[in-house]
Write a protein that binds this DNA or RNA. Structure first.
Lengths: 221, 221
DNA sequence: GTGTTCCTTACGTCATTTGTAAGTATTTTT
DNA sequence: AAAAATACTTACAAATGACGTAAGGAACAC
């Protein structure tokens, strides 16, 4: 079963969270020493991290960034501040979803399951016809060439590949990129699509992504 | 046979080079339009690039950087300026070796073969005992985790893995990193080793690299 | 032809990579 | 034990890449 790490300084809350998780069959571990948190988490190689933002020593934001740079799995931010600003900040630092405390058990579990599904390690390469994509590292292969896509490029291309040749809505893409469908910046998605197309062009992959006006995008083939 | 792209603005020299290459059985192509060179080269997906530094429109240095960022193969810089400064500059921008013109046919071919050997696409993952390395993308795998190493970290680890458990000399490592064993900065190698060790430690791979005083380094196991 | 939707380009900010430099630690030699 | 050689670490700065934002242009629909 999936291994979850809980980072929460309030002992009560921590206990309650690990309790809930264990009853649901997750393998739950909690961080109790609040220095070098990122390293501790990495050592546990978790499948998902529940991360509180208000921590005694480091900021949860820093930890978030640090974990992401180590390629460590989905991060679900828990925050008692219900200030929108902070949450968005968190997402931009690499968190994959967020929840404000207090939150209902089922809501938490649903979000977690959603994230776990999204981040499930995909075996092997995904075939894209004239190219392939490693869905875990976002490495693009074509013939003997290979190229590492940026995180955003990879996420978009992966979403398109998984639904090929169907249209993928902008909402879905936003979710893949920023973990939520709300507060999306239409234009940011545009720009990232332009960038992906440009990168693909450098790989002699022209006109792969088709625009479906009013709906979204789809991969040809 | 290997596909070589020649970038050289002097028509005579160009002709001579492609001639030599074809007689040796290489598939040689030459760039004759000197704008958007990097893109032209990318479109040819070469196994090796012979790149002159003195070019009419762009600087060879820029092209070099651009090609490297696209993950394009080994670059051998040809330069008529025999100023040491420039050559070193080129290597630091990602070139893999350099030669000053004029140079002897055999010398050129030897260097090319050396580079081609070094950059030969390696199939599959290299097993490192408690971890694996994708030698093409420098992705490090351990269990379900994966992490992209930086270029320097990857080159060092690859060299160590390929010679495991033998000692790899600093000279050899310098060659892997900067394409030449001369003019190495001892300390730069040190620093890169420290960085690799630190990265490995974050992956719970402690004490993998052993120092052999006066000789070099080796991987345990 | 007017408005909506989509695309592109330029810009600023932040993080990462990397060589350099300077100092510290460790081992070997004398 | 002191000195010298070798190895290690940390801090700094420059260069690069990633990415959201903003602003304007292009394509399409009606």
């Amino acid at each position: 079963m999936a291994r979850i790490v809980v980072v929460e300084d309030d002992p009560w809350m921590r206990e309650e969270l690990t309790d809930i998780l264990q009853k649901e069959g997750f393998e739950a571990a909690a961080i109790t020493q609040f220095h070098d948190i990122a390293q501790q988490i990495a050592a546990l190689a978790p499948d998902l991290v529940l991360l509180d933002i208000n921590l005694p020593e480091q900021s949860g934001f820093d930890i978030c960034r640090s974990l992401k740079s180590k390629g460590i799995g989905p991060i679900l931010i828990l925050t008692s501040r219900d200030k929108l600003q902070d949450e968005l900040h968190g997402l931009h630092l690499g968190a994959d979803d967020y929840l404000t405390k207090p939150c209902h058990r089922d809501r938490l579990l649903a979000r977690m399951r959603n994230l776990l599904r999204r981040f499930e390690a995909q075996p092997g390469l995904i075939d894209g016809g004239s190219f392939s994509l490693d869905p875990n590292t976002f490495t693009l292969y074509k013939g003997s060439q290979s190229l590492l896509l940026s995180a955003n490029e990879g996420k978009i291309l992966l979403a398109l590949l998984q639904n090929r040749p169907d249209v993928v809505s902008k909402k879905t893409l936003s979710e893949q990129l920023w973990g939520t469908d709300q507060f999306i910046d239409e234009n940011a998605l545009q720009v990232n699509l332009t960038r992906l197309r440009k990168t693909l062009r450098q790989f002699q992959l022209d006109n792969q992504i088709e625009t479906v006006r009013g709906l979204g995008y789809r991969l040809k083939g």
